[in-house]
Each structure stands twice: as structure tokens, then as C-alpha cells.
Nucleic acid binder design. Sequence first.
RNA 1: GGGCGUAUAGCUCAGUGGUAGAGCACUGUAUUGACAUUGCAGGGGUCGGAAGUUCAACUCUUCCUACGCCCA
Length: 960
Amino acid sequence: MTLDTTFDPAAIEARWYKHWEESGGFRPERPDAEAFTIVNPPPNVTGSLHIGHALDNTLQDIVIRYERLRGKDALWVVGTDHAGIATQMVVERQMEERQDKRTNYSREGFVEKVWEWKRESGGTITHQLRRLGCSMDWSREQFTMDEHFTKAVLKTFVDLYNDGLIYRDKRLVNWDPKLKTAISDLEVEQQTIPGHFWHFKYPLADGVTLDDGRDYIEVATTRPETMLADMAVAVHPSDERYASVVGKHVVLPITGRRIPIVADEHADPELGSGAVKITPGHDFNDFEVGKRAGIAAGDMLNVLDGEANVCQTADGLVPDEFIGLHRFKRDGVDGAREAVVARLKADGFLIPHIAKTKKGEEVEHDAEPRQIATPFGDRGGVVIEPWLTDQWYVDAEKLAEKPIKDVRDGTIEIVPKSWEKTFFNWMENIQPWCVSRQLWWGHRIPAWFGPSKEGGNLSWNMSDYSTNKVFVAESEAEVREQARAYYGDKYEIEFNEAPFAALQTVADYVNEGIPPNKVILRQDPDVLDTWFSSALWPFATLGWPDKTDLLGKHFPNNLLISGFDILFFWDARMMMMGQYNMGEAPWPRLYLHGLVRAADGAKMSKSKGNVVDPLGLIDQYGADALRFFMAAMESQGRDIKMDEKRVEGYRNFATKLWNATRFCQSNGIGASTTLKAPIARLAANQWIIGEVQAACVEIDAAMADLRFDAAANAIYQFTWSKFCDWYLELIKPVFAEGADPDAMPAKETREVAGWALDQILVMLHPFMPFITEELWHAQGDRGYDLITAKWPDPRAKVSKDATDAIDWVIDLTTNVRSAKNELGIPPGAKLAAFVPSPSDLASSTIERSSAAIERLARLTPVTVGKAPAGPAMQVTAQGGPASDVFVIPLEGIIDIDAEKTRLEKALAASQKEAKSLEGRLSNANFVERAKPEAVEKAREDFAYHAGEAERLEAALKRLG
RNA sequence: GGGCGUAUAGCUCAGUGGUAGAGCACUGUAUUGACAUUGCAGGGGUCGGAAGUUCAACUCUUCCUACGCCCA
């Protein structure tokens, strides 16, 4: 097959991808091979490929292709995540556009709509991953809502429940009033926004006064609306200003609620007045203070509904005018916050803030401006409300124990290691994980509630479901069994899906005509956090809980690659669930990479409009170039700044390889037939064999350490700077006009060059799969595709003399070129040279490689012996231990002063170096205390530079 | 407030206790057979600052400064 003169990535990418996928190239049958397994961080089913995915998946593909080439049974599990909140939002938004809404449907109806959406437009990203060249096992594509996955989720939930590691609890959650669901701590983002700090007077009750005579306590808050549900005022136990009033009461303005003054260390005497209002139902700190003050969670007052509008508190003291107001100003309409402040001000309870203008005048404001750390929901984008509800919690602290130990003792290696500290810091301070979500799309919680049985009578507690009887099991059949055991045969058991809201009271229950001998069980309407299911990814994707062969062979996985941003969300939770369900760490190694940033270092975001579309880059430069860029920039522990020039550079690299292959083809260099290096006698051929080995060793070492940058640079440098720049130039004389194409040198060189090019294609394949596969086949008929070829075997014997000889020719060539350039001699000029006292290497190389010396160094003839008298330039050649001086007469070619200047410059450099080394060597401390190798090296370097200086001085003398 | 990370050539980044590297950019130069998406040659860095350890520090330690991230 002949190659076009220009390389066009687009033309080959789709073709090869299709071929690989259809021919099973991504997962060849290798039943007896050692397993190598990676699971892909499942992207959201709603997602589309962004630059971060491109990085993450490129790295994984490099590893998986590398291991596949090394003969392993390489499995890359791929799939998508059902992304509860995100997906439900997408479908609801689409409904909105049609003036439709979720609640127009039954739960089942809506979920079916989501499935429809998923079938039609979900998984865009999986097609985009193909464009990148990712070699995942698509035949086993997974989805976290697959039937077998659901089985795994249910089993895990039930097991955890039975082990007491999942429980229902009433406490404050992070409530998203836009999405109307609880979310976990990790889904909350703290942002600092400008806000206000208001100061209020809370009048003391019963005529009590402070020691200074005041009849009120001053409190301050950034959230005045919560005062409607205040239940205490706290002061520090050691704060003498308030010691006399601890245990006394204040009467809250507006509600008139009588609340105690309590002593609690949470109150900071240094902050404001030292007294703080306590709203246990709406603030995490206050919740704790409230509990310490003896208020049960169930008794804490709540003044906001699910949409964060004011509702009546249990004591009924909130005036009607406030009911229904939103928590704060929204869409230009004042809310409860503004109303409370206005009312307090009107009633004289507001203490104004006095600010000074630049001119020193005092001005009164209602509040002090302040920067406020405020929690936002990462999906909904609105301020999170701490809200008192019943939710399911996972005992994360218990589950974290084994993962902590795994990382501590090296069972799991985190790369780069610097992340370990962050990991420990989080895991050791982990909070209970709220896993229930008030959504319809997701894994339904396998818990059913029924009336509790007290002394033979059934009773429902409508205000607090957690006190009702709960049955947790994987199926209704099991629940029925449990229920029968609990209620006895006297009751008929029925499952009913009617929403809880339909049965608010016992009276409703009776009114529905439910006979007294019937028990109705209702499943918890909530679903599980999506991360609860993705935590099972390393084994549920392999068939767990069934004991499949696949699971046996591929769990534990070998490596996980993820962005550090999901270390806690996903990686840590996989560790927990791996240990809990499988009794093992899910993988021995975790590689964390950084973010891809915009060229200016800013975080890419849609709102900033600075996102770079990886597909656009692929269109422009080819997938291979983008991949290579990702790999070359991926040094451990640093974010990657986008640099399109560099992507372009790697496109150029691909073109270079393309053209090198064209050159090979034009000289009859084709596919090699052996994995082992061919037998070679010519120095250049031995040299390139040695260089292939060195490159392979370097790449293997880099890959073992997951140094993607080092591996990419090694193959890049070898291909361009060694193979193209030197080897192909060195062998050109063999194929030159007049040379015998059937003679040994040409035959051997064709074999070696073909072999070396093949090794390049194999070693480059993990990084640039498309162009390498194309060239692999262009080079000749092959028994197999490159994707399933064999990684180079770096063992081959090459003679040191041969490689030294080529190093010597290269050094000579470089030095001659450099000298010519400095002296203004045309680079093409062929010059005669004399070698007065050649080394052994020089003697043999001048004889055997005269063609290369003529062609590259452009020296001819090269005469062994003393140069004739007269001006000359001098260059040296080094290779291994050999060091030779070439004298090149300049008569009539160049002005002598230029050569003098050049030599003087070189002499000064050598003398400076020699002097510095001499100084070091004359330091007794250095000679005695430094490592012997270092001393030896210094001696060698000194000898070299001293000799060089001598040679240069002699050359200068000759010039006169 | 706690923790972590980064600071090396104009730019983006590697790097090692023993005379500083790559890519891009820049300068000079080369053009009829692999390749101008190129070749050849070259300029450019007191390795953020200060102190310490060491025969020797860009590298190790401490402190400082700047920037970034995470947690509270």
C-alpha cells in the first residue's frame, strides 16, 4: 500500500475504530493470560465529552493498550451513571419547554419518560469516547440502572441495614429547596458572598436585668428570618457579663416565644456581644447546642417548608403576615428576612450599625456589611437550607476504617502520594453519609413502612415515620415474610403505593375503609444517592453479587484512574464498598490526575465561555495529537494548561512519522517478520537496535511509575531525534544511486530499518493508536492488527564498538556543522580533513563509514596523518572512550580571525571548567568525603577539559 | 482558622545532592527525492526570597513572599 503524500487523520480514524470494534480488538480472547482490569469512571448519562474526560480516558486507554500489547487479558469496563438529580433535571426541563411537568405523571409514568430519554439521547458521551480512540469493552457496556446493577444496590443496602451500618435518623440535612431533595455534604459548595450582619435586642423576661442594668440581650445574625424559630440564647459559660442570667429567659420579639438563656461553649465571648441566638431546626451548630440544652430533634421548631417558604411552627406563634413568605428576597420580592428586619426595626428591637464615612461622619445602617460563607447546592445552584428531616444515613465512619488502613499500610497506593494526606484528613473526619434523595429517578430504597405494634394494637406515627415499623429487604416477598412474622397471622398484609401524603392521620387510614385486620405497607418513596450505586462499580459491573468467572478474574481491578475532584465522591466510596462487599480493596493503585485548565490558567466553565471542545481539537489536529498532548503534559500532581500550539506540535510529530514511513517504503523497507532484532553487522544498524532497546527500557520504566509524560517524551525523542534525524540519514548511502540494492548492506539495512520502524509503531501505539495502526498495515501484510501486536522485547546484543562508532560520527558531524556555521562556511561545502593521531575507533570508522562521514559531516577525503602547514580549523569527535582531533585546512576558504575567535571562546569555556574542577579536586574535604564515583567523575572531567584546552591552544598556535 | 500544592529559559512544563533540560516562541541559515506540518546551527536561566545542614544545594531543613486548591 502506498501512502498519500500528506497525512490526514480524519480519513483514517473512523475507519480503524470501526474495524477494531467490529473485530473484537478491544478485548481479544485471552483466557489464559494474566488479567489487567480498569473500570472507567462512569460519566453521567446526560453528559457530553469535555476536555477533562479526554484527559481521563486518554490516560486509561494508554495503560490498557500498553497492557494489551504486553499480552495481558486487558479489560476496560465502560458504562454510564444514571446521575439521579442531573438526569431528572434534564427531563423535567424538557417537559417544562412543552408546558408539561413531572407531577402530571405518575411516578412510573415519569420514570418511563426518563428511560425514553435515555434510550434516545442518553450516552452521547459513549460515542464521543470512540472518537478519542478509547479501546473499551463496549460489548459489556454498563449502566448503573441495569437490572443486575439494581440487584447489587439492593443487596448492599439490605446487608448494610442488617449490619446496622445504614439507619434512619432525624437530623439536619443539606436541603436543596429548588430541587426539593436532601443532598450530601459533598454536594454542597461553600461560597463567600456579600451579606449583612444584623444586631437585635432580645428583651429579658420577668424583669431581670444584666449586671450593667440593661434589660435586654444583644444578639447578632446573618439570617434574621430564622429568629422566628429561635429556641434559646447561648452565652459562654465563662462569660461573666451574662453569668447572672443563665437559666433565665428572654421573650422573643414578633413571636413572643419565651426561650431560655443557656450556657454553651459554642458562644464566642469575643464575637459581637458574646451572646448568640439558637435556632436548632435551621443551623448545624445550633442543632448541636440545642441537643446539649436538652431539646430532642423531634421537638425542634421548624419554620420553613420544602421550598424554603415560611410555615407555622409547632407552637403556632408565627404571625400570619409571615406565613408563606420566601426565606429571603427573591426575584425582587421581599421575603421573610426583609419582613423580620422591618418589623424589628419598627418595634425598636434593631440596633443600628454605625459606620464612618471617609470624611469621618457617622452614618447609621440597619446592618453591617459582611462577607458570608454560604452553602450552595452543586446542581441546583441555590442556597442550601439546613432542614430537619428523616433520612437514611450510612455509617461512613465505620466503613472508612478499612480503606484508611489499606492506604496506611500500602495495600492501596495513591499516586501521586501527596494526596494521601488529604485522603486521611477527610476519611478520619468523615460524617454520616446521607444517601436518600427525594427524587423519582434512581434506585428506590428497599424499605417498607408499616404500623408499629404496641401491646397488640397497631399505631401509626404520622409526624415521625422513623418511629414506625420498618422492613428492609430485597424483595416484596421477603418483606411480606418479615411482616407476617412481626404482625402475626391475624393481619392481612397489603402493599400499597399511595403516597404517604394521602394518609396523614390515623383517621385517614380508617376513612379509607381499611379494615382493622389489614396492614398496609408502603415503600419509602425516596431513591438512593447515585454515588451509592457507582460505589459498587468495580465489582457490580463484573456481575456481583453473582459469583461470575469474570468477577473472579478481574476483581480486584488493577488500577483506577480518576480526577482528584472525585476522590471523596467516588474513589473513597468504592474503597468502602469494596471492603464491605468483597472484603478487599477494589484496586491496589489509585492514580489521580488534575484538571485541564484554559490557556490562561482559569478553570474552564460554560459560564466563563472558555471551554475547549476536545472534539474540535480532534477535528483540527487529529485524535492522536490530542492524546499525545494529554500524555506529554500529564506529570503527576499538576493541572494541565491548555496549549493548542503544543497539540499542533504533536500533529507535526505524526506527520514526521508518516513521512519517515514513506521514505522507508521508497527504499523497499517494509514490515518485519520477527519480534527479535535482526542480526546486524553494520554499525548504524547495531546502533539503532541499541537505541530501540534503550527507548523501550525507558518507556517501560515510565509506565511502571505511571509517568505518562516521561513515556511520551521517550518515544517522541527516540522517533524524531534518533530514528529520523540520525538513523535514516546514516542509512541513506546504503540506498544511494549506484549502491547495489541486493548486496548485504542494503539487505541487512532493510531488515533492521523495517524492524526498528515496527518497534516505533508498537511503542507509540498506546499514545497514537490511529496513525500507528494505519502505518502498521501500510508497511505490509500482517498476521494481526497492531492493537493486538506484541510489545518489543528489549533483549538484543549489540557491540559497544559499533554504537560508539556511530556516537562518534554524530559528534563529529555536529561539531563540523557548528564550526562551519560560526565561520560562515556554507553548510554544503565538502572539506578535506586530517586526523594526525587517530584512536582505534577513529581508524576503523574512517575506513568503514567513510560514506556516512562524507554525507553527514561532509568531510572528504579524510586523511590519517599530519595536516599540511597553514591555517586550519579544528574540531573534535567523541564516542565512548575515543576522542579525536580533526584538522581541516582553511586556506582560501575563510578568514582566520573568525576561527581564532571561535577557538578562543571554546578555550575560555574549557579553561573555566577545568579551573573549577581543579579547585574542587584540590579541596581535601571533597576528595576525602565525597562519594568515590563523584571524585572519579570530577577527575575524568578535569582531564577532558584540560586536554581540550591544550588542543585548542595548539590549534590557535597553528593559526599564528 | 486547618491542610495541601505550586514558584526553573519569553511562554507551557520536566528534572537530579556533584558543571541546568524539552516543546513552543525567537535569531541565523538551508529548498529539485521522506518531511517547510521540514532540515541545520544558535541566543536565552545567579532554578521566588532569606537563613541553615553538607566537601558540595536548583535539589534536603526552617522561615518568608506570591499564587492556586481543599476543608472548617
